[in-house]
Design a protein around this nucleic acid. Sequence first.
DNA 1: CAACCGGTGGCAATCGATTGCAGCCCAAGC
DNA 2: GCTTGGGCTGCAATCGATTGCCACCGGTTG
Lengths: 405, 405
Amino acid sequence: MAAAAGVAPSTVSRAFSRPGRVNAETAARIHAVASELGYRTNPIARALPTGRTSMLAVIISDVTNPFFFEIIRGAEAAAADAGYVMLLVDAQESSTDEREAISRAIPIVDGLVLANSRMSNHAIRTVSAQRPAVVLNRPMSGMPSLVSDNARGSRRAVEHLAELGHHALTYVAGPEASWADGMRWRSVLEAASELDLRVRRVGPFPPTLAGGTAAVREMAANPSTAVIAYNDLMAIGLMRGLIDLGARIPRDVSVIGFDNIFGSDFCTPPLTTVAAPLHSLGAVAVRMLLQELGNRTSGVVRPAMLPTHLVVRESTGPPPRRRQAPRWASTAPSAATGDGSGPDPAPDPARHPAPTSDQPRREERSAGRTAAAAPAPTAPEPVRRSAATRSSESTTNGSAARDRA
Amino acid sequence: MAAAAGVAPSTVSRAFSRPGRVNAETAARIHAVASELGYRTNPIARALPTGRTSMLAVIISDVTNPFFFEIIRGAEAAAADAGYVMLLVDAQESSTDEREAISRAIPIVDGLVLANSRMSNHAIRTVSAQRPAVVLNRPMSGMPSLVSDNARGSRRAVEHLAELGHHALTYVAGPEASWADGMRWRSVLEAASELDLRVRRVGPFPPTLAGGTAAVREMAANPSTAVIAYNDLMAIGLMRGLIDLGARIPRDVSVIGFDNIFGSDFCTPPLTTVAAPLHSLGAVAVRMLLQELGNRTSGVVRPAMLPTHLVVRESTGPPPRRRQAPRWASTAPSAATGDGSGPDPAPDPARHPAPTSDQPRREERSAGRTAAAAPAPTAPEPVRRSAATRSSESTTNGSAARDRA
DNA sequence: CAACCGGTGGCAATCGATTGCAGCCCAAGC
DNA sequence: GCTTGGGCTGCAATCGATTGCCACCGGTTG
């Protein structure tokens, strides 16, 4: 190339990388020859002296999780806009795989986005020490991180139910190790308290369709007119289980999910959900990273937060009028009042063989001042789980689920 | 590193890249020092002299299309297994974006997989001339390509319907430019002929939820007891439209889709579908590419094909007994016999404002010997389409899904 | 005694850019 | 006319590996 244009390679380099540094005439000639030859500067050769590859890695805890679909696309778009190439890495829900993949990717990228990483904080900081990194869906001090406004979202969900006339709701919990679950539950609790709704929590369950279905058993044992599930997948699984029991949604039960994933609009009924700005989450994370790459002089970094909004579809409606046990409840009418004063009726295992049968059930809590003031209890008692449940719990994840090993 | 181990860099290099070429003792020392220092050979520096980067690009026509989710994961897994890093590139349903992205990726990868490429054959061959490439979901002679067995899948779908007792079916077509659509339709036609089912084709429609919903209008005008849709998304959209009209599925209408995408199991009712081996499609494509990288001595290459299988869920059942017009039909009972002898009743545009209202309706064709003998007619008459429909038609090819702005 | 041997390991060129430094040229200033 | 200086470009070192070639080694063979 240099020879073809009759100049030294250094001049060619300058012609491309720093426009003003070369005579306009020479530059024009070089560009002409270049486009004629289809010449493009070799990114690998360039990366060697500069150390910059113009590649970003996006580490996803599970590429098959629909939660990430729009995030991936948002990230890709933002990266492409800035002339960066995106390396997509699937951690396959395994922190060791994630580590391994990151160590392979690190030497060839300028920075990385860790989406719902399952690694420990310490491991993340180690990564961050080697390359600029942005953490997605997990607040971390001292390094750039980005989360969505779960608190506001939860509040909107509760408000929506209150406006519809509900007086009580059940929160179906996802993985306890998940930051998002804690946040969502706490905020639901708080909002319910202010709006004078009774609230109850069941779970944790795996954040999957199956997890949602598993929760039906507890719901049936202790019915309520409204449910907020940890994520859409669980909400959908829950609805399916409820419908199988003969419940009509939303006439008998209102259901709200989180995230607004692909599919939440065409499940039946279409799901009311707290929409996370998925595309933006990906795009903004990348832009934060890009900014980090630009000036390493980042002072105090605090978690950035993106707004959520409630998407009202057809899975929510006014509560049923009757005060007797709904037909889909598993037993005695007394349980249907939902005040939890009586002993839990024994569920019928034959009807719904549940993988979580050995899991202690939480007491219903009234959302009075005291309850609201207390921070969300996290794993107050050791929880025995079946092997099946434990493994499946780690298979999917709507939002941050940290490693518990 | 070389200094730390007290040897020349060349020896370090050989210790890693060609085990036999270095004294076992020296190699051991080198490896010891290396692991102590956390040294790993720099892939970029290595790539410069060798020209190999151990990276593969997977170009996806639309990362948000659920069709690709498992494909991506399969590809990632196969690449990671072989020690390759995967570059995921989103073509965003645009052939120019695709070209651009490929030209950026080509200098840094050893080979690429083109999944449902939207580029011309010629453009693909140009790419293939620069780097080994495997084409996914599009048969191409002279270069490795991989498709799923649509013919067999279509046949199984028709057989399933025949076994249930159906005597007629409607095929809801996807984009005419799509190879898969042609293949599916031809095979449906052929199988229906052999099994003595009447068959009718409507469309083309965009391969999206909305496309499926749009097809409802034509269905209502000319009801049949069974439908095979070009893909799952359309099938789901179709079901939703049908249900809105008061039809019960599968009691009134049986619906079958293609691909078995995420969501086809939790839509209502769960969809019977011709499952493509999505994960394998991705993994095998990558493995074919890897093999290609190993020995460039590929002789005659012919499209490889992966088997499909029918997943029977709840959207199919026996046909209804009655012979009168179903209540969801748009008009006169005469149309309900489905023999197509009468003139098409005018659809009611007010009820279902359809984007394809100016589209000529195909005549029903009996699947007699003559019809079966003829190859599938592809766009036999010039079709007027609205701009919206036209643009969406060109957006996809194997199975696409996105709604566009 | 020299040629030869297989097994090792160093030398140095190379991949294709980047970049500090120096040199060249021409115009302006003294 | 000589110096100075700015604009432009070439030289050459560098990034961190790979790899062909050659030297070395102790021992064997003709």
